[in-house]
Simulated assay, not measured.
Amino acid sequence: MIRYALALDLVDDPVLIEEYETMHQDVWPEIQASITGAGILAMEIYRFGNRLFMVMEVGDDFSFDRKNTMDAENEKVQEWEKLMWKYQQAVPGARPGEKWVMMNKIFELNS
């Protein structure tokens, strides 16, 4: 199993942040199916202020390129992404059009 950590910012508006969190309490079933269908085994999203932190655990066969292709071909995913962009904004340093950005692991403790 492989773990990825990604970051994204929300628009810094308490009303929009509350709406975003509410929407994530009942994520559309088609979105959940798309996530698991791409080989993502587990996903968690955390928030501090307007900064989001996502942890994804994926199988050995997972590919970001494959996931992006699947998402581009899925009308429901495109609808969800368009809706989510109302709440989201790129983190400083993200490339144009980039949403979630990969974070670099700088420490690991194994006991």
Rank of each mutant, 00 (worst) to 15 (best):
M23C: 11
H24W: 09
D26N: 15
D26T: 12
W28C: 07
W28T: 04
I31Y: 02
A33C: 03
A33I: 04
A33G: 04
S34A: 11
S34Y: 03
I35H: 00
I35A: 02
T36G: 13
G39Y: 01
G39D: 04
G39S: 07
G39W: 00
I40H: 04
I40N: 06
L41F: 06
A42G: 13
M43A: 09
M43R: 13
I45D: 02
Y46M: 11
R47D: 12
F48Q: 10
G49A: 13
R51H: 14
R51Y: 10
R51V: 12
L52Q: 02
F53R: 10
M54F: 12
M54K: 14
V55Q: 10
V55L: 12
M56G: 03
E57H: 09
G59R: 14
G59L: 09
G59C: 10
G59S: 13
D60E: 15
D61L: 12
D61F: 09
F62C: 10
S63K: 05
S63R: 04
S63F: 02
D65K: 05
R66P: 00
R66Q: 13
K67R: 15
N68Y: 09
N68T: 10
M70N: 05
M70S: 03
M70T: 02
M70R: 02
A72N: 14
E75T: 12
K76G: 02
V77C: 07
Q78F: 03
E79Y: 07
E79M: 09
E79H: 11
E81D: 14
K82W: 08
L83Q: 09
L83D: 08
M84W: 02
M84S: 08
W85F: 11
Y87R: 03
Y87L: 03
P92S: 15
G93C: 07
G93V: 03
A94Q: 00
R95T: 11
R95P: 01
R95C: 06
P96A: 03
K99T: 15
W100K: 05
